[in-house]
Design a protein around this nucleic acid. Structure first.
Lengths: 353, 353
DNA sequence: TGGATTTATGAAAACGTTTTCATAAATTCG
DNA sequence: CGAATTTATGAAAACGTTTTCATAAATCCA
């Protein structure tokens, strides 16, 4: 049974069948004319010898690798893990391999991975940027060489010409604000990621817009735009709750940190939702499980994934033009849970349209 | 700035510098003798023209792709996401790319991915099997062609000759049993995955061994070995709590399902830990966050990842021999949380060694 | 100084596939 | 029936590297 030898090549098949390599190749790939019987013989021999196409040789000849590169900040983040899962499954169904690289939120690493993947001659790229990426020029090589590149979630700003799929972060921010407003919060704050990233910028814009729309004040002392680490989050909470104007509603733009807020509240006798209402972002399963469970914004990661693959495949069999193609925006949805449930009567109901 | 053209090749460099492609290659790769000044000129021109090595051509020539294939059941599972994160980072540091495929716990898909990765001429393979894989012959191609293959976590049985890194599942099971015993449980049960997989088989063996060691009964009606879905878990719980001999301690060999148990208990007025103590498996962050938090077995996924890479690199620069190399076993550790805290006095203390 | 060694470069083959260009055989059909 | 078309196959080149085999120049050292 064991072959335990070198790899068999198309020449081995050709020799064994007294055919030319050209015919064998045609039989294997169903291209051009090959006699039915010949094809049959080739297939059988291929099976018998355990022939497997050398994709490198084929790739070199065709300048096509059937490989897609994917760069993301960290694969273990819930949202990204879900997206990758779907993307990999769909691409596999189309005969593509997926090469994955993690930037660990380090722009230098991101650049390095770009170079490597370009060298590997990936057929296309999918990228979710670092939070700190402000110079996107290391992605230029791809567009310059007609390699389709598609950004998602954390994407370059509008002045960088690129195809983009992003969540409706503005809307996500807006409905978070609306929900807190409707729940009766009046001292509303925000713990947000760094404004260098489009997602946090948009969420903040939507959120503040919402507060203004509902005639609620945007108090500077309750707004933090910073690294989303546990330490920073706790530091922000300490400051907020040390001041006299304590928040009664918080929009925390990452679920992991919303969890931190819940834990901090428990430890400090702050009741949720009575004293403090919380809205997170991403619908990480942990928000459903923690007690109290956390209201959050679902980003539909698997929809994200399927849109990505759909768009990428379309890009790959279209000639890349210079024309501007607007970003695809995927929907968001508020998932209501205990952290914002309306337990107390609203004293001062807001007029909602 | 924009090149916007074809890819530059080594021949372009050679022509531009009036050198032979051979010299350019040598300069680029630091192989053999090249005048210092020449190397300098090559490097500069490479930079100027934006030359990037075509790894397919190089791979074809060297039969080395610098790519490692990784097959796992599902990337979004906590343990695997952590392992992948570490593996990808370490491999990248060594100049390797990582090709990822998800079997979705489907043996047919696993087989398909094996074929694809083999065709892609990966330099080595890392695999965590499907729970249902009983025939491992689709992995034979790799060993037969001297491609190092390393299994982890869900691995083939001992009669399949392969390098293996696995967690100490027996020990994990044992300390879970010991912990429940020491906490005073007397009616101890288990919700386990299918016994087709080595990990669940070993956890069960360790667990049952532990109960016997502590002179506790192993009641068949409290042991379930089945698919680890929410539905199945709830079904098992219903049966257990409908019977007269209700469990006061449960070892649930997956954290996700331990969470299900906690939720079921809450909904059905079963107090944790007073009425029911629970030990999970994997130290998924969710176990720390849920209330009550869940005692669980940590598998040290990042240690797993680094052992994997270390072993794989060693395998890659050693000629593969037929000699048997025993499995590397990584440690486990019990993480004690609220779901097993000792609130009630132990009536009937066990004699522990 | 002159033979041996080291350093530096080039020509050409090779990796395994696909495809273009030919050409021959079989089939169509006016 | 014979010309046109379709079907079937092969020879050879090409994809972009790396490496072996040469050979020439520079350096060593006795």
């Amino acid at each position: 049974m064991k072959e335990n030898q070198q790899h068999h090549t198309i020449l081995d098949l050709a020799a064994a069948l007294k055919l030319s390599p050209a015919t064998v190749s045609r039989a294997l790939n169903n291209t051009s004319y090959v006699k039915k019987e010949t094809k049959q013989r080739v297939m059988e021999m291929a099976l018998k010898l355990g022939y497997r196409k050398n994709t490198m040789a084929a790739g070199l000849r065709n300048s096509k690798t059937n490989t897609i590169g994917l760069i993301l900040p960290k694969i273990s983040m819930f949202f990204h893990a879900e997206v990758v899962t779907v993307v990999q499954n769909l691409l596999h169904a189309q005969g593509y391999n997926l090469l994955i690289g993690q930037s660990n939120d380090d722009p230098a690493m991101e650049k390095e991975l770009s170079e490597t993947f370009f060298s590997s001659r990936v057929d296309a790229m999918i990228v979710s940027c670092t939070l700190q990426t402000i110079d996107f020029s290391h992605f230029d090589i791809f567009a310059d060489h007609q390699v389709p590149i598609l950004f998602y979630d954390r994407v370059p700003p509008g002045n960088y010409k690129a195809r983009v799929i992003k969540g409706d972060d503005f809307q996500g921010g807006f409905i978070a604000g609306q929900h807190l407003a409707e729940a009766g919060c009046r001292n509303i704050g925000m713990i947000n990621g760094p404004m260098t990233s489009n997602i946090y910028e948009a969420r903040a814009a939507g959120f503040m817009g919402s507060l203004q729309y509902f005639n609620l004040p945007v108090r500077k002392t309750l707004f933090y735009h910073q690294e989303l680490s546990t330490e920073q989050t706790i530091a922000a909470l300490k400051k907020m709750f040390a001041a006299k104007n304590k928040p009664d509603g918080l929009f925390v733009t990452s679920d992991r940190n919303a969890v931190t807020v819940v834990q901090y509240a428990k430890e400090n006798g702050i009741r949720i939702p009575e004293d403090l209402r919380i809205v997170g972002y991403s619908n990480d399963p942990v928000t459903a499980v923690i007690s109290p469970s956390i209201t959050t914004i679902d980003q539909f990661p698997s929809l994200f994934g399927s849109k990505l693959v759909e768009t990428l495949l379309e890009m790959m069999d279209t000639i890349q033009t210079d024309e501007y193609i607007p970003a695809v925006v995927t929907p968001v949805k508020l998932v209501e849970r205990e952290s914002t449930s309306i337990l107390k009567p609203i004293i001062n109901p807001i007029k909602l349209k």
